[in-house]
Design a protein around this nucleic acid. Structure first.
Lengths: 78, 78
DNA sequence: GAGAATTTGTACGTATGTATG
DNA sequence: ACATACATACGTACAAATTCT
């Protein structure tokens, strides 16, 4: 599950899809902290802005909750 | 040697250049503690993040070593 | 040893500028 | 015009490590 910088799908959507899968598959459990923005940035070789856009999508879907200065966490409800 | 907020050179690179000079000129001697991040922040009128980016460059160059909770020190060997 | 102060580490929020398609 | 993507730079907040009182 790697990001394709040359594909037609926007990077932030690709990254959102990857993270969505990790959550739905249970790799990331409810209440657990997501990898930080800077970690995801380095892990996937994208900018922090792109990471934030991806997380923004998940937040809009109610999959994650972000606390300023603390981190982003997998939502408990579904 | 002042930082130019309007120039084309990024602030953190300008600051890194200033600190690099101080080291190479001997104003800051090997083993000696660098000014703290908050000191540099106030001295040059930039944010702490910018200071940390500048120091990060010097660390990558092996010019300084940073110890958590202690400070950043001018590297002894080169 | 306890507690405060200092310093670095981590994390997110926001804004702006630039470049590309 | 707009969306995507990156880089830079500010800020806030708190944690962790160390030092000082």
């Amino acid at each position: 599950v790697t990001i394709d910088h040359l594909g037609q799908e926007p990077l932030y959507r690709q990254l959102a899809a990857i993270l969505r899968q990790r959550i739905e598959r249970g790799d990331l459990e409810p209440g657990q902290a997501m990898p930080s923005e800077s970690y995801l940035q380095q892990e996937h070789g994208v900018s922090r802005g792109t990471v934030r856009m991806a997380i923004g999508l998940l937040r809009d879907e109610g999959l994650v909750v972000t606390l300023s200065g603390r981190g982003t966490f997998v939502a408990r409800r579904k």
